[in-house]
């Protein structure tokens, strides 16, 4: 029996699922306890698990990640929250220099089984410093795994996989998706990291999207169908590991590719996907590979401007029409 729950409640359910299963899992972050999280995604966890396993911290992201890293080194499996993904910049030294490299620098003797979960992306009019889609920062650092679910079911399944993984995982929750709903079955849900999902089958063009862009890609596919264009939509779900196989197999079938990214254009994940597909499936391509992205600018906060720059359904449709023509 599946129930309809929000992406926000899926976060709580995912954390609770893992904390009930394993005593070494604990949650740490700013306002995650008493306040239930600034997005209310961790509400109720303090009541169930108590203040030792659900801990509020001072407003110091470096301290949060430093503590999580130390805890992971000594046998716990911390879940650390960075309230807004933009704030990862204040503790990037710990992420890029320490966490990503510890396994390598110790020749595999020290692993860091920790998850950093963070509210990522735009759509809520929060301006240039609270709306960035920064998953590409993490993808550019060898040694990190990077996950960004688009719906409640995937959020729970991928989160469980992230907690159970022995290496650091950056888990990007798209903050504009928190109120969105999806069907989730009862019982434990665990998925595999590094697996993309074909959410709609098609034959003319492959659209690859992530997190908030998946729903828009599906809406674009609906509109394209009315024009007689059959689009296949792939929810990438995880950037590292990257499920190149699913994408390439799809492009071999459709011969066209459009990637849809929320982030600024230069050196986004779309560039990597396009480069890989172009190299691996060169002879199957019937037209230029197209990237639909936010322009290479800081994100504006004004409603009309934010709507203008984030990839819209119309821009995805236009990109696909161009790709197949």
């Amino acid at each position: 029996m599946a129930e309809l729950i929000t992406y926000r409640d899926a976060v709580k359910r995912a954390i609770a699922q893992e904390m009930r299963r394993d005593d070494s899992v604990y949650l740490i972050g700013e306002d995650v306890g008493d306040a239930g999280g600034v997005f209310k995604a961790t509400k109720g966890l303090l009541d169930e698990f108590g203040p030792v396993r659900v801990r509020d911290t001072p407003i110091s992201e470096e301290a949060i990640l430093g503590a999580a890293m130390g805890a992971a080194m000594t046998g716990l499996r911390p879940i650390a929250e960075i309230m807004f993904s933009d704030f990862l910049a204040t503790c990037w030294d710990l992420v890029a220099v320490e966490m990503a490299k510890t396994r390598y620098m110790t020749d595999g003797q020290v692993t860091l089984p920790l998850v950093i979960r963070t509210a990522n992306g735009g759509g809520l009019r929060f301006g240039a410093q609270h709306s960035q889609a920064v998953e590409n920062w993490a993808m550019a650092v060898p040694g990190l795994k990077v996950v960004a679910p688009s719906n409640p079911h995937d959020l729970i399944g991928l989160f469980a996989a992230a907690v159970r993984d022995d290496d650091p995982v950056l888990f990007f929750e798209q903050k504009s998706l928190y109120p969105t709903k999806g069907h989730v079955e009862e019982g434990e849900i665990v998925e595999e990291l590094g697996t993309a999902k074909i959410v709609r089958s098609g034959t003319d063009v492959t659209i690859v999207a992530l997190a908030s862009m998946v729903r828009r890609a599906e809406q674009a596919a609906d509109e394209l169908a009315e024009q007689g264009i059959s689009a296949e939509v792939i929810d990438l779900r995880s950037l590292v590991p990257l499920d190149a196989t699913t994408i390439i197999e799809s492009v071999v079938k459709t011969s066209r590719l459009v990637t849809v990214e929320e982030n600024p254009r230069l050196c986004g994940w779309g560039s990597e996907v396009v480069s890989l597909v172009a190299e691996e499936a060169f002879w199957h391509l019937d037209g230029p590979l197209t990237r639909v992205t936010t322009p290479h600018i800081p994100l504006p906060s004004a409603d009309a401007l934010e709507d203008e720059v984030l990839p819209s359904v119309q821009r995805i449709v236009d990109g696909c029409v161009k790709a197949v023509s």
Partner: peptide, 29 residues
């Protein structure tokens, strides 16, 4: 720099889009 998302990926993606019909081979990195 590491291959993933590096400037080479950006350039390869741009060339795929801007110069597709001039390509005799994929842009390699």
């Amino acid at each position: 720099a590491a291959q993933s998302l590096g400037p080479a990926a950006e350039i390869a993606a741009r060339m795929q889009q801007e110069a597709f019909y001039h390509l005799e081979a994929p842009i390699l990195r």
